[in-house]
Amino acid sequence: MGLEHKLGDLGIVTTTLEQAVNWGRTRSMWPALFGLACCAIEMMAAQASHYDMSRFGMELMRASPRQSDLMIVAGRVSRKMAPVVRRLYDQMPEPKWVIAMGDCASCGGVFNNYAILQGVDEIIPVDVYVSGCPPRPEALIHGVLTLYEKVRGEKLTDWAMAEEETA
């Protein structure tokens, strides 16, 4: 029944489950609509018409962390904001990834002081760091594609183990 019936023999493609799952995860990764500071404007520019991130299946920014699987920490994280960022991260369902966008989120940037977290990796695990102050939209897109490469190489067993650890 279905398409094969009409068209005849289409052949068989074999792949591993892991590859199929990872392929699926990279094709529609939904970032959380979550901007903090300057980098959020460049993140918006990356979403808008000139750079158009929807070419990579990322046009859907979800305002709710419960519907998203990628957190782009766009901007400096203050000590007052840190618990909020951590809570948002905890609310995201597995599997989830984090991009630290910009110097402030990666290492504190020019703000080495009492108010700013010296890198968001002090509170949440980061997969990809994007440099720049703020990074150009191209740099963000490159960061996202780098993350895709990482995701394509992931093992399903690792996720299962991580879930057991947290459970």
């Binding site: 290492c107 890198g119 990796d121 509170i123 695990p125 690792d158 991580a162």
Partner: peptide
Amino acid sequence: PQFTFNFDEIQARKVQGKR
């Protein structure tokens, strides 16, 4: 700032990735 000579010391303060 995290340089090569104090990399481990500062890394220990950060949240370790699950992977």
